[in-house]
Design a protein around this nucleic acid. Structure first.
Lengths: 232, 232
DNA sequence: CGATTGCCGACTGTCGACAGTTTGTGCCGA
DNA sequence: TCGGCACAAACTGTCGACAGTCGGCAATCG
């Protein structure tokens, strides 16, 4: 599998094609709110702006549509995804379902190496949680949960989380910043690790529900504020 | 919703673009095993075969890649997805996670209308289960589970199942036919409905685990037979 | 003055073409 | 006979262009 001559192996020097570059560009722009939610994106306009043809732009947009960052309307083009409270709630509810399953799988194969890797990731999270880079906090938080899915040893399950993670980023970055303190972020994740160590499925499940529930409520609350502000 | 004057309603005359037609054509061909697993699909070849240009073929292939029916390798093109036992097991494990969550949600909002709709769908399943159309059996079986996700009232959760369902069809159609009897298929689904009615979460979860587990084991068993046959 | 109809601009869906890359093949040397 | 190298064929990634369609605007009619 790890044989360098394996033709299916990924190349060492990743030759980034235009599509991937456009995806990164658009993803970063949307998550940084440089495109307003609901804004229409013109294929030709973007292509001209980036100095390329429409083909890679179109392909990148289709990929981002499957990731839930853009929506397409036939013959109308692509629009930046907007999320109402119901959709947002659905996203976090699905996340609860996926994480419950992932944590349960990790618990059944919990060992010293698992604990060490999770421990290290929480430490990284604690480091950035003390700083001011909100984007970095989000990424390290997601990285912890991504690690859980990796340790759950189900590639398809991990991909389901990856698919959802783009929408999660969209949810989270809709709000400007988390109001959680570095201490509460750290404590919340330590409790998740403790629950895994305990081997108690019910406790682990409750902890996951609480953890995701807090994140959901926080985002919904902020969205309500935003909506109120934008209306008033 | 059903108001004909609703501007957001779907148009009566659906103008199917080439991409959708190609997706249907390729999906049907793959699930009917007219393309061998692992077979390389040439964009130009398909375009010529269908009498269209490469652009819609390429776009259709990308969509099917996101659905897990094709895989693409950079500069190599598209290949029909192959599933080994590990991947297959992952797919059904994710299905268990999603269905547990969906059934739990349905249970919390179970009412007479819910029961009636599920009842009707099982009746339809029983009708076709007695016949010889294996493809129809699969579709009605999936339709029951799709209905559960619809009743779970979470669009994102339902979409996750829809995404997975293409891979499920790929798994199921890899084997030529189910060896389950019409009676066992019916009984299995009636038990799921009874579990929902009981309002007992643990019973419902156990029933779901058993139901999906049987399907998984059946597919894995058949895949092992196939592998044995194709090797010997 | 409000509603309807026809027109116009902008844009998507689709097409054919070119260049760079990868794979397969045949030749040459050991 | 076998391994390495070069050549050639096929294919993908990308490009520019055209036609059909959609939404908006203005002119027209009641």
């Amino acid at each position: 599998m790890a044989n360098p001559r394996d033709p299916s192996a990924a190349p060492f020097v990743v030759q980034r094609n235009l599509v991937d570059q456009v995806v990164d560009y658009l993803t970063e722009a949307i998550l940084a709110s440089r495109f307003a939610p609901g804004e229409r994106l013109s294929e030709a306009g973007l292509a001209a702006e980036l100095g390329i043809s429409r083909a890679p732009v179109r392909e990148a947009a289709r990929l981002m549509e499957s990731r839930g960052l853009l929506v397409s309307r036939p013959r109308r083009g692509f629009f930046v995804r907007t999320l109402d409270v119901a959709e947002l709630s659905d996203v976090f509810d699905l996340r609860i379902g996926l994480e419950r399953h992932a944590f349960e799988r990790v618990m059944t194969r919990f060992d010293a190496d698992t604990e060490q890797r999770l421990h290290r990731q929480i430490s990284r999270l604690c480091e950035v949680a003390a700083g001011d880079d909100e984007g970095l906090k989000i990424e390290e938080d997601l990285a912890f949960h991504r690690l859980v899915f990796e340790l759950a040893d189900n590639a398809r399950l991990a991909r389901a989380f990856d698919d959802l993670s783009f929408e999660l980023r969209l949810c989270i970055t809709l709000i400007t910043r988390t109001h959680e303190t570095p201490e509460s972020i750290a404590a919340s994740h330590w409790r998740l690790l403790e629950a895994l160590k305990s081997g108690d499925p019910q406790r682990c499940r409750d902890e996951v529900d609480y953890h995701i529930g807090v994140a959901r409520d926080s985002v919904i609350e902020r969205l309500a504020e935003h909506a109120g502000v934008s209306r008033g």
